[in-house]
């Protein structure tokens, strides 16, 4: 694996995380419990899709085979996606959607903070841009998790159930492999395991305020970021997201 091959893989991971989560969140458009939440979710999705254009755009450039962000997003099949499993999990109820958002936002904000100091200026400048947007996402998702967790008996129960459902997908974000090692050696990115202490502190504080109990099992599902094995949910998502370009290749506005 050359350094550019590792960088391409790494950029796909960044771009696929934002793409798949952005698509998932956009599924709420027109369905959220109240108008303000609908707008908030749509805006979050929009930021994530915007970040995807930057990450996948750079990935295409690094790969040098003429694939742009659109081709990478719409013309790869499930096994070529490199997002963590957490972001492809179905929305569930509003509480589970916000819990998934919080668990990812916390990771994302810490990761982008490190990437702003990347040795690759192209990575650093995208991280700088995205970081501002993500700190805003985190403020909202953390606030909502606390509001619902420390809310009514029903909202508390739903948030605790969401946390138990999603917690086994947290560990994958901190599991490194050869791509991560190559990026760390090049100073492009940090070893994912090194982000865990900050994450645990942040998530522990917010979930404590939300009166929610973190499950004590360290078990972690894996296979998304390496592409070894996604869940069945990703394929269903892609059939919808990619439908237009598959049915009418090259169609544009």
């Amino acid at each position: 694996m050359t350094r550019d091959e590792a960088l391409f893989e790494y950029l796909l991971r960044l771009g696929d995380n934002t793409l798949i989560l952005g698509h998932r969140v956009s599924e709420w458009c027109g369905h959220a419990p109240v108008l303000e939440e609908d707008i908030a979710l749509a805006n979050t999705a929009l930021d994530l899709i915007g970040q995807t254009q930057l990450w996948l755009g750079l990935a295409g450039e690094v790969e040098g085979k003429g694939r742009d962000a659109d081709k990478l997003a719409f013309l790869r099949d499930a096994w070529d996606f490199r997002n963590v499993l957490l972001v492809e999990m179905p929305n569930g109820d509003f509480g589970r959607t916000l819990m998934r958002q919080f668990l990812f936002d916390a990771f994302h904000s810490i990761l982008l903070g490190k990437l702003m100091k990347s040795s690759d200026p192209r990575v650093a400048e995208i991280a700088e841009k995205a970081s501002k947007e993500v700190s805003y996402h985190l403020e909202r998702s953390a606030g909502t998790v606390v509001g619902l967790g420390d809310g009514t008996e029903e909202s508390h129960a739903r948030m605790q159930a969401a946390l138990e459902y999603l917690w086994p997908y947290v560990g994958e974000m901190f599991t490194g492999d050869a791509v991560d090692a190559e990026m760390a050696a090049a100073g492009v990115a940090s070893d994912p395991a090194s982000l865990r202490a900050d994450y645990d502190a942040l998530v522990g504080r917010v979930l404590g305020d939300a009166t929610l109990a973190i499950p004590d099992s360290p078990f972690a599902h894996k296979g998304g970021k390496t592409g070894t094995m996604h869940t069945e949910h990703l394929g269903h998502l892609l059939t919808q997201m990619q439908w237009l370009q598959r049915a009418y290749p090259g169609a544009s506005w």
């Binding site: 303000e36 939440e37 707008i39 908030a40 805006n43 979050t44 929009l46 930021d47 805003y136 403020e139 909202r140």
Partner: peptide, 13 residues
């Protein structure tokens, strides 16, 4: 504050 987000990405309600 009604919502941290608004009618465009740059605004809140």
């Amino acid at each position: 504050k009604v919502s941290q987000f608004g009618s465009t990405p740059c605004k809140a309600a």
